[in-house]
Design a protein around this nucleic acid. Sequence first.
DNA 1: CCATCCCTACCTACTAGATGGTAGACTGCA
DNA 2: TGCAGTCTACCATCTAGTAGGTAGGGATGG
Lengths: 209, 209
Amino acid sequence: MWYSRIPMGAKRDIKTADRILDAAEKLVQVRGFNAFSYADVSKAVGIQKASLHHHFATKTDLGVALVERYRRVFLEALAGIESEEDAAVDRLERYIGLYRTVLRKKRMCMCGMLAADVATLPTPMRDSVAVFFAENESWLTRVISAGTSRGELHFAGTPASMAAFIVSSLEGAMLVARGRGEPAHLDDVASLLIANMRPPTPSRSAKAR
Amino acid sequence: MWYSRIPMGAKRDIKTADRILDAAEKLVQVRGFNAFSYADVSKAVGIQKASLHHHFATKTDLGVALVERYRRVFLEALAGIESEEDAAVDRLERYIGLYRTVLRKKRMCMCGMLAADVATLPTPMRDSVAVFFAENESWLTRVISAGTSRGELHFAGTPASMAAFIVSSLEGAMLVARGRGEPAHLDDVASLLIANMRPPTPSRSAKAR
DNA sequence: CCATCCCTACCTACTAGATGGTAGACTGCA
DNA sequence: TGCAGTCTACCATCTAGTAGGTAGGGATGG
């Protein structure tokens, strides 16, 4: 009936389910989970409202699928970064780039948005949002640990606490950037974040190597 | 007719308007602007829904009054901090305490919440939210400037950029704390924030003196 | 001193439109 | 033939907002 059934004959329906997810994801990132309706998705996808229920029986089902896909895609992006970059600072820059890309599309991180809506969210969505942040922090902890032990980073506190700090700063930067109507806000925060993690000693070109 | 008329005979009505604002503020901080209704406020205040329209003709009017009052109260709190504390670090700790107090009540900063809802907000509310962040940053800039020139603080970047950074980190910390369901998250972020702004040199008791 | 008037605060009862969701039928492909 | 995908038509409930009326207090004026 709906989304979890991936291995099936045609691909037309998978495409529809994905188009629904795409439209809903954008709506959540821009307006929030409570401020979009099946009617909005219907309009965006070009399908009747009732047909949406065929793919995602309830709004909760849609929401859960949304967060799960978002987490999966994000994790894949993180794995990509880790395999393409070696230096901790470069990895962090790429990580920040993920946020920048989202904000440039005038969206907010979907899980940041859902974190705001958390009090009104169905429990399974809530849990999945919590996992998203935990996954982000544990990836960052790994990157930062490697970076500090190689002397590429310097700061007060543990890698884990710094990882939590980075997630918070970036989520907050997106939020405030929206609130202020100034997307550049994120760049300012990001560069200060990196600046304060660089080792202090010889000149400022202490980048990789 | 409604709120702007403060100087009048009785005080009963002022109290009602304030009770409405209190209830609505809490609802916004917990659920967001789109996820509460006049019916919710009606229940919380113990007044008929239609009577709410007597005090705040539309939801937009209510929203604008809400943000304006929030800003005013926040500014007063900041002025209080400035007059009661001299050392920059103490002022920052007190500033962070403001956020902690809100989160302890299981709420989010109201303007942080509204920043998430920004795409669906009536324009006057949007503007007022932007001013809230600007006011916060300019207060912090002043505090940080004084602190750096007295050698109480040390970090990479300008006081203004650090001020923006602090607002973002704290707003983000509240958001992630909610998303993770771990209020302590804010404390971790806050202490790391302070730790990375302390002057590096002699011991860690470089506080005020 | 009292009748009138006006205003604020509140009420009951209603509306139009949106919301998430359902029932049941049609269509085209495997 | 069966079934996934779509449709039209519908529903109960909730939404912000309106209409119109009542109670009571304070001022005004005769």
